[in-house]
Nucleic acid binder design. Structure first.
Lengths: 377, 377
DNA sequence: ACGTTACTAAATCACCTTAATAGATTTAGT
DNA sequence: ACTAAATCTATTAAGGTGATTTAGTAACGT
């Protein structure tokens, strides 16, 4: 059940801590690392030397100018590995190639009415073949795996976008995981699309200095991710931050956030009159619902921040953000600590990018669990 | 910022893990501990020997009957320390004396119209004097401190129970903490009343085997606590699980849970007709609101369980639980994993007891943070 | 030249792990 | 009733991993 710890766990954790610190600072010296982590200088030396020997770090120059001996700056070795991230959306498939530093090297999107597993697997395999072929041969070895971001319940909420039961039946979670694992000849990681997007913001976007936030991703459907203590919160069944099914009140009773803050609901309204007015009314509705969920979530969790993001253009996102801010201010209880309302930096590609980060997150994040026995790489 | 780890942290964590495991199993042998924690038998031996030498553990007998050499059972040494827990309620003050094993040795309650800090401090000091005088002299040394459980916003929501601004003004959080620390000559710990009650259930009640749950405490006002990963989730300002101010929909719009699921709201209704019918209608209202909050919280967090508790008699709590279960089933979305709906075991004294557990929780819980440097005792 | 800062090397400390051994009790056989 | 095997607990001793301490060296600015 609860496991003990030993010195192997200590090293594992300290290595990950060094890596993530270097990542966060975009380069650091051994002395910097010792100061920031509280490790002894000697420990920092040995850990950095080890990581350099393993090819995870490279020397990126010297920092001079101050007094004393100049410091040698180490950075993440982007060439140390590659991953592929995939977002399986309800009407689009997105593939990205990431390097070991989380930089997007290539992107491919493909609109599709409603995806089917075999076709998706074939497309991913094709993308991997093409992209890896373009790399130098010795680098191909360093392929770390594929991450898949998708709605867990792609088959539910079918009526909203006119998907038949027949189309949906191939998307049962266990079956899909098995099919992908056998169809792709490499490690495969899965995550909820909202959580994947939140992970991308956590590691490469607005979340770099934020430890606790709720992330809204407004796409065809609204999705969410929850970060607590700098870690993705998955919950018992991996279904946490299921924002689509958060209940919200409506004039006539109650409804789910999905129906109020998703682009499909905007698109369904468009074309029946003044589109600009319709868009504005939708934004109002959307903000009202998001503000309600935010107030509840923050009363429950006392967050640092709430991040708004998704497939909206920057102006619409900004308008939405201001509407939400206003509605929170108007409806918050007296004992409410309003969280910062941030805008996502990564945008539409966040779920795919987060998917690609999954293999790195699994092996190189300093989660405290890596201190325990049985957390072997 | 993020700290590294070393072998001292490992020992600290493993010691705490051993203590909590012995607590959970109500006694264990060295071999049991090695098996459960995954530590080597030798590590278990050294840790248990150390804890025994420090007086935290005592031999509680031998377990025989099975094959092989009988095992020596160790238990927490209740005499190793004492704490006092205090719940400052809006109309009552409760003090308890706990031993090192979390057993309640003495209780004192005192109804009071609306408490004032100086009077409360005097009463706690008096309780401490009397109770410690009754202990053997050598045990008095082992007094570990006082824990205080109170609503953070005792001055807010004044209108609901007719408290004047003048009465409330002495309860600003920072002032109160300073006053208690200087007025009581011992370590003082503070916690939100709901979180304290949840802590009592976590360490001594229904939460012993549950890692992630939301706790409802229905008293004069409704309070809450949130346990994630076996730890109290406090949030950025210590204001997490502020269930009183969770928004809920009503036929006419929206309201706060406080107004729908608190005993003051029942009492306000009573006396204007058939009390049994009023009580039933209130339970319905209450269940509706709690179910709404539960569905939202579980969509957000994907919990293991939800715990209902408070100052209701057992029958009322059971009725409420069944109503909530029914309303959750009726309103849950399709992608909803229903959490177990548990009833609290500790009841009305939970906040005071949890307060008394705070000093123990701070020093002896195997939170992963204790693995890091700078987490010294 | 001198102080400052970065870094390195060797010895040491703390803790966990492994392997071998002793001890205590039940079970099964005689 | 006695003995031997099996089983499990517990201890002893040696070994391993990793962080820390201490002392020293290297490189730079003033």
């Amino acid at each position: 059940m609860a496991r003990g710890s030993n010195s192997n766990g200590v090293r594992r954790y300290n290595e990950r801590l060094v890596l993530s610190t270097i990542r966060r600072l975009d380069g650091a010296s051994k002395a910097d690392l010792a100061k920031i982590t509280g490790l002894s200088p000697q420990a920092a030396v040995r850990i950095v030397e080890g990581l350099e020997a393993d090819g995870l770090l490279v020397v990126a120059g010297r920092r001079t100018g101050g007094m004393g001996q100049p410091s040698t700056i180490y950075k993440i070795n982007g060439d140390n590995g590659f991953t592929i991230g995939v977002e399986i959306g309800r009407n689009r498939l997105t593939c990205v190639l990431l390097n070991f530093d989380g930089v997007v090297l290539a992107t491919q999107t493909h609109d599709v009415a409603f995806p089917q597993p075999e076709a998706v697997i074939a497309e991913i395999a094709q993308f991997a073949r093409v992209q890896l072929a373009a790399l130098a041969p010795e680098r191909r070895e360093a392929f770390l795996g594929v991450g898949i971001a998708m709605p867990w319940f792609i088959g539910e909420w079918r009526d909203e976008i006119g998907v038949s039961a027949d189309q949906a039946k191939d998307w049962g979670r266990a079956d899909v995981e098995a099919a992908f694992r056998s169809g792709l000849d490499c490690p495969v990681f899965f995550e909820n699309d909202g959580n994947a997007a939140a992970l991308a913001e956590l590691l490469c976007g607005v979340g770099l200095g934020v430890e606790n936030y709720l992330y809204f991703h407004i796409g065809t459907f609204v999705g969410g991710g929850l970060v607590l203590g700098g870690q993705i919160h998955q919950g018992r069944h991996g279904n946490a931050a299921a924002l689509a099914s958060m209940p919200v009140p409506t004039p006539g009773g109650r409804d789910f956030l999905l129906h109020r803050a998703s682009l499909y609901s905007l698109e369904a309204r468009l074309g029946s009159g003044d589109d600009a007015a319709i868009r504005q009314a939708w934004l109002e509705d959307c903000a009202e619902a998001i503000a309600f969920v935010t107030v509840g979530a923050n009363s429950l969790l006392d967050l640092d921040a709430v991040v708004l993001s998704g497939a909206l253009d920057e102006a619409a996102l900004e308008t939405l953000g201001q509407l939400v801010e206003g509605k929170i201010a108007a409806s918050a209880p007296r004992d409410f600590f309003t969280p910062s309302l941030l805008r996502g930096r990564i945008g539409e590609v966040a779920p795919a990018m987060g998917a690609g980060l999954l293999p790195l997150y699994a092996s190189y994040t300093p989660n405290l669990g890596s201190l325990l026995k049985g957390a072997d790489d």
